[in-house]
Design a protein around this nucleic acid. Structure first.
Length: 264
DNA sequence: ATGGCTGGTAGAACCAGA
């Protein structure tokens, strides 16, 4: 007997500022599970009501004051199994759950890394690389079917950015970050579902700056958000897309949500 | 013109995002 599970991931840039568009997204797309990044709220005042009204009664929250914060909301049973501190500084950037079928779902918010792509001049860049190294060590040992989603803050391929040449020295697309992300991918033979369904060199973006006069017209996007799957369950993914239209909604996040449908 | 905006928290001529 097969089961279809629809999983979404969205860097929401404040859940409280975005409650209306998240509700619209849940009503229109009806995912079974939604992984959120940058919730920017402590767990005590996370706006659970809207989610529960729509049947999302399983809420796994890992927030903190002001910045970062992740959450997994679900209308099918999930149980928390870990919340790693891959940055080793207490920031809320990961939470992981297990579904009833035993597949793990890991929701991560990799640090942006600051402005200067040099760990000596900019400690945040070093923290980002160290975060990735800890994820590599974890991936090396991983022996359970796992789905890894979230805001990775790296656009690895030339066709993942609006201009490869102009962004080579911009944090999120530097060769060092792209090489490190490739090592992370190789550490578990992770399947990049975005590029499985939209092969390079087709344009594929998930983030557009707030500062563009017209984000859609200039289309200076980057693919910062990703969904990866263990090789042994990658074939369970039967559909995947970036819901770009959400970027044009009223008071949007600067990220668009991703959706993958699995048939287990 | 890849920072032109945006949010949170404080009460900033702030900090952070990417």
């Amino acid at each position: 007997m097969s089961q279809t599970i629809k999983i979404a991931s969205w860097n929401i840039n404040s859940i409280r500022a975005r409650l209306d568009i998240v509700e619209r997204f849940l009503q229109e797309e009806s995912p079974d599970i939604l992984c959120l990044q940058e919730t920017k709220v402590v767990d005590q005042i996370f706006p659970e009501g809207m989610f529960r009204q729509l049947g999302y009664n399983h809420l796994i929250l890992h927030g903190q004051l002001m910045h970062h914060g992740v959450a997994i909301v679900s209308r099918i049973p999930i149980r928390e199994d870990d919340r790693f501190d891959w940055q080793d500084n207490g920031e809320a950037r990961h939470v992981g759950v297990q579904m009833e079928n035993g597949v793990r779902l890991e929701n991560v918010y990799i640090p942006a890394g600051g402005d200067i792509p040099d760990r000596n001049e900019n400690p945040k860049f070093g923290q980002k690389l160290d975060f990735l190294e800890r994820m590599i060590a974890w991936s090396d040992q991983l022996d359970t079917p796992t789905i890894l989603v979230g805001d990775f803050n790296i656009a690895p391929l030339e066709s993942d950015v609006w201009s490869h040449k102009q962004l080579l020295n911009t944090v999120s697309h530097t060769p060092l970050e792209c090489e490190t992300l490739a090592r992370l991918q190789n550490a578990h033979n992770w399947v990049d579902l975005g590029r499985k369904f939209v092969p390079a060199p087709e344009r594929l973006y998930t983030w557009w700056s707030y500062r563009a006069r017209d984000w859609a017209e200039s289309d200076r996007g980057r693919r910062l958000d990703h969904m990866w799957a263990s090789p042994d369950i990658a074939n369970a993914a039967v559909a995947h897309r970036v819901v770009e239209s959400c970027r044009g909604w009223n008071k949007p996040s600067d990220h668009a949500p991703l959706i993958t449908e699995f048939q287990f």
